[in-house]
Simulated scan of single mutants.
Amino acid sequence: MPEPKTTNYTDTFIEVAEDSPAKKAEIPPQKTEKTVAARQFDMLYDHPYQYTSDDVIFAVHAEKNNIAKKDFTSARREFFSKGQACFRSSPLAKRYGWGVHSDAHGKIAIYPLESAEYKKLAKDKSLQHVKAMRSKRG
Score class of each variant (00 low, 15 high):
116 A>T: 14
60 V>C: 05
67 I>K: 05
75 A>R: 12
37 A>R: 01
38 A>S: 07
86 C>F: 09
34 K>N: 02
120 K>I: 04
107 K>A: 08
43 M>H: 14
13 F>D: 00
71 D>H: 14
51 Y>W: 07
85 A>W: 12
33 E>A: 09
132 A>E: 04
77 R>S: 13
108 I>Q: 01
83 G>H: 14
85 A>M: 14
46 D>C: 09
104 A>P: 09
51 Y>R: 00
16 V>W: 07
60 V>Q: 02
36 V>Y: 11
93 A>Y: 03
125 K>A: 09
101 H>N: 11
79 F>Y: 15
34 K>F: 03
76 R>M: 12
101 H>F: 11
4 P>Q: 08
110 I>P: 01
31 K>A: 11
125 K>W: 03
28 P>S: 03
7 T>W: 06
29 P>R: 10
90 S>M: 03
53 S>N: 04
72 F>W: 15
13 F>Q: 02
94 K>H: 01
86 C>S: 15
27 I>T: 13
126 S>G: 06
123 K>T: 12
92 L>V: 05
77 R>H: 11
15 E>W: 08
37 A>E: 02
12 T>V: 05
137 R>D: 09
44 L>P: 02
136 K>T: 06
64 K>Q: 15
5 K>S: 09
25 A>V: 02
54 D>P: 06
65 N>H: 11
2 P>G: 10
25 A>F: 01
79 F>H: 07
11 D>W: 00
92 L>R: 08
8 N>R: 08
91 P>G: 10
83 G>E: 15
96 Y>Q: 04
96 Y>E: 06
82 K>R: 14
87 F>C: 12
90 S>G: 05
5 K>W: 11
15 E>A: 14
115 S>M: 10
39 R>M: 15
37 A>W: 02
89 S>G: 10
52 T>I: 08
100 V>S: 07
121 L>N: 00
23 K>M: 07
70 K>N: 14
15 E>H: 13
15 E>V: 11
91 P>S: 12
103 D>K: 01
92 L>P: 01
33 E>H: 07
62 A>Q: 11
67 I>N: 06
9 Y>S: 01
55 D>H: 03
117 E>A: 12
99 G>P: 04
3 E>Y: 11
84 Q>H: 08
12 T>F: 00
53 S>E: 12
17 A>R: 03
29 P>M: 08
136 K>Q: 09
101 H>K: 10
51 Y>M: 02
3 E>I: 14
11 D>E: 13
85 A>P: 12
100 V>L: 13
27 I>Y: 01
124 D>Y: 05
96 Y>M: 08
73 T>I: 13
89 S>Y: 13
83 G>C: 10
113 L>I: 08
54 D>C: 08
123 K>W: 06
117 E>C: 00
5 K>G: 00
8 N>F: 04
39 R>I: 09
